Structure formats: structure tokens, C-alpha cells
Amino acid sequence: MSIQAKICGLRTAEAVQAAVKGGASHVGFVFYPPSPRHLTPEAAADLVARLPREVVPVALTVDAGDAAIEAILKAVPIRLLQAHGKESPARVAELKRRFGLPVMKAVGIAGPADVNLAHEYETVADLLLLDAKAPKKGLPGGNGLAFDWGLIAHERWARPWFLAGGLTPGNVVEAIRTSGARAVDVSSGVESAPGVKDLDLIAAFLAATASV
């Protein structure tokens, strides 16, 4: 079984092309103004139009209201919602009902209690994203931080899940082997500066995941 890979925080056609060429299964677009990776729905729509059908476009939002999500979906043919804030299980279930799309819930991991929290979303989310817990004053994701992959090495999950947090071309193979992940997510680990994707790093990351 091959490893799926999601390249998140894409902002240019060149970066999208690099992700597609390298074999990414998912590409993520950030709709969160404080992030250096933020895009408008109109800009994202142009990038999604370049995707082949087999690559899944993902909308990352952070505690977004219904009106904001509706504006994104009106402009962009998104196929997966990524809830990357403090959305409760009830809110995740509501997002699925209201918008009729699968939802991936991100959960920050720093210790066993966070792993237990992630399990609470298994009955409502379609997928989980196990990410490093964000610093209190930092962005909710894309901080280049990793967590102890051993915390989830022996967990059994009722839903498919992606591993995220501090992944790079240099450590992703170790991360996969330690955690047991079958899907990975990267953003800052393939950047030359915050929000600036490095095409060579994207290629190297995807080549590394394909080698497992």
C-alpha cells in the first residue's frame, strides 16, 4: 500500500504543478488570513482548475463560520474540508451535514491526553490529521514543529489519518516508519520562507514518501 501525501499551503501554479508531478494525493489551500499561506477563494479557484481529477483539493479553515465556508465553496470546487481550529465534535458533524462534504479534523498532539482527544472525533470526522500541538501564541498549524511519533505508534484508529507537524524530506521516512502512518501532510517543511514553497523540496518530499 502506497503512502498518500498532502502538500498544504499552496499559493502558486508552479507549486501546484510540482505537487501534481510528484504524485501528491491531496493539495491544501489555506483560508485563514493570519497565515502567510492564506489565499482568497478566487485565487484558489484558479489553482484548483489546474488539478487532475485524481488529486483532491482541500480547504483548510480555522473555526470558520458557515458564511465564510459558503463563500469558499461557491468559488472553489473543494472536495474535502479541513477543520484546523478548536472545532468540537458537534461542529464537525454539523459541517458534514450542512455542506455535504467529508471533513478532516486536525488535532494537535503533545501528550497522551491529546491522543485521547483525537479518538473523540472518530465517530464524526471522515479523516483525522494528527499534527504537532501549536504554541499558545502561534498559528494553529504550519509551525514546523514535530511531536513524539511514538505517542501514536501503537494506536488503532477507526478512521484514516494523516501525520503532520515538522515533516521534511529528511525525516518523513523515519516519521512514517515510527508512527505507522499511511498518509502524511507537509507545509512549512517544503518552504524556503513562510508561505513560499520550494519546488525542489516538494519533489524531494514526494520522492521520499514514494520510497517507503
Rank of each mutant, 00 (worst) to 15 (best):
T40W: 05
P140I: 04
L80I: 06
L101F: 10
P112W: 05
G23I: 08
A19N: 13
E14M: 06
K74F: 06
V92D: 02
H26W: 14
A113T: 10
T12Q: 10
A18R: 10
D114C: 06
M1W: 00
I152E: 03
L81Y: 01
K137F: 14
A83Y: 04
H38C: 14
A210N: 14
S187H: 03
T178Q: 15
F31G: 05
A49S: 15
I78R: 02
V55W: 09
A175F: 05
R11F: 03
R177Y: 10
E94Y: 05
I7C: 03
I69N: 00
V115D: 07
G150E: 12
R79F: 07
A207V: 13
S192H: 02
E70A: 15
D46M: 04
S25F: 02
A43C: 00
A146N: 12
W157I: 14
T123M: 05
G85V: 10
K136W: 09
P89Q: 11
F31P: 03
I202R: 12
E155K: 08
A15N: 08
F205T: 11
G150A: 10
E14P: 08
A24Q: 11
L81F: 01
A83I: 06
V62F: 00
F205G: 08
I7W: 02
F31W: 08
H154E: 11
L145I: 14
V76A: 06
I78Y: 02
L127T: 02
I3N: 01
L39E: 07
L117K: 13
K86N: 13
E94I: 00
V212E: 15
G150C: 05
A210M: 08
V190E: 11
V92F: 04
I202K: 12
A83P: 13
P77M: 07
Y121M: 03
D114Y: 09
A110W: 04
V173I: 15
A208D: 13
A90I: 02
A90F: 04
I7Q: 03
G195R: 12
V124N: 10
V55I: 13
L10A: 01
V107I: 15
L60K: 00
Q4E: 12
V20H: 03
F31L: 06
L129S: 05
R53E: 15
A71V: 06
A44R: 01
I3H: 02
R182P: 02
Y32N: 09
Q4P: 00
R91Y: 08
V48P: 05
V55K: 13
Q82V: 00
